[in-house]
Amino acid sequence: MHDDVLSELLRPLWLIDVFYSMWKAGGVWGVKGHDDNCAIIHYMVEGGCVISFGDGAPPVRVHEGDLVIFPHGTAHTFASAPEAPTRPLSALVPHCRPGESGVVRVGAPPYKTLMLCASLHYSAIGEPRLYQALPRIIVLRRRMLEGEPLLLRTLDSLPSELGRTAPGSRLVTLRAFETVLVLSLRIAMEQLAEESPTLRALHHPGISKALVAIHGSYAEPWTVESLSREAGMSRSVFSQLFRELVGEPPMRHLTMRRLQEARRLLADTSVPQQDIAQRIGYRSQVGFHLAFRKEFDMTPGEYRACRAVRTRLIPRDRADHHGT
């Protein structure tokens, strides 16, 4: 079994599309974004800006060379100063769709701030609960990136991909941003663990082993006792610390990982429905049926039928791209 918790955590989370742009800003400027169902990246190529959430939390100042990740696309404002007037993001990029790229100018020349921005759209079916618990913003300072040559080379090469139409450019860009996201979360896990219970869980030597077991071998007949042995901890200490860091009991987390996989398999009509229960660790169809209905308020069969209808409603070119 792999001992890499980040790989196991992100394995079900696959990117399906990306919109990226180079922002050039000058003078007094501000942009107000909105909640989005995607991960967002801001990389400060030159200059800097101030990020705020409008809920009373202190603004975050980012500088040249800093990388900012919004794992859940949380609405935020980025501006030249905390009190700068803002324009809605939708007014600046009104018709941008995933897969497109562009250059956006805001404020007035001379443009002293240059920022690479991207919206990474991933499949909601595969979003792990532990990923959902990541903080709304992760700030990686320039000094933290200095020991990550692969990440820096990828970030530095992305601006040259803007507007390219060479064969495979769209897929190359998608995979490049996927690499940026994974490497960023690895740095956060290693260097910012104390800032978030979820990052602490990923970094903790015992809890991370249990998470690898749950996410990588979910079909095994795990119990609290066997998971605590996997973690090298006593049952009581393990249960308490797991709940504190992950936000739910170990068996609840295991159940949700199994049901997450069930939804993925149900969305794939080539997988016989009667095989799914055993494939995700349930010893009976009845147990799987009851657990799925309790969590999603529909039966596995109803879920598969709903997914089939949604797939038929997706335009052909869009559906084809989802398979990349």
Rank of each mutant, 00 (worst) to 15 (best):
R257K: 01
E295N: 11
D317W: 06
E46Q: 14
A176P: 10
G54Y: 00
L162I: 14
L227A: 08
R257V: 00
S196Q: 03
P197A: 09
V60Q: 08
E46I: 00
F238N: 07
C49T: 13
H34A: 15
A291T: 02
I137M: 03
E295K: 13
G216R: 00
R316V: 09
S169W: 13
H203C: 12
S239G: 14
S184Y: 04
C306S: 15
E230N: 13
C306A: 15
L13N: 12
R293T: 14
V31G: 08
P315W: 00
A124P: 13
P205H: 13
H34F: 08
I51R: 01
M251K: 07
E248C: 12
A91G: 09
Y43N: 01
T255M: 01
H321E: 09
L174E: 10
L145N: 02
P58L: 14
I40C: 05
D55A: 02
L245C: 02
V62E: 04
A79Y: 14
A219Y: 06
R293P: 11
R304K: 05
I51Q: 02
R318T: 02
S284D: 04
V18D: 09
L145Q: 05
I16M: 07
H42L: 04
H215E: 00
K294T: 06
V31M: 11
T269M: 08
L202F: 02
D3N: 09
E146R: 08
I41T: 13
L116D: 02
A91Y: 06
L9C: 06
T269F: 02
L181R: 12
W29K: 02
R97T: 05
L120E: 12
V286N: 08
E225C: 12
I51E: 04
G107K: 01
L266G: 05
P300S: 10
P197R: 01
H289R: 07
P300L: 07
V172T: 10
L183H: 08
E148D: 01
R105M: 13
L185S: 06
A118Q: 10
Y43L: 00
P58E: 15
A57V: 11
K209F: 12
L202C: 01
R279A: 05
R310L: 15
P82F: 07
G168L: 13
P205L: 10
P300E: 07
S270G: 15
V172L: 13
R170Y: 10
W222A: 00
F238C: 05
H121R: 10
V18T: 12
P109D: 00
A91T: 13
P128Q: 05
W14A: 15
M144Q: 06
P250V: 08
D275F: 04
A81T: 15
M144R: 03
L92W: 07
P58W: 15
R175C: 08
S184R: 03
P300M: 09
R304V: 11
E230G: 06
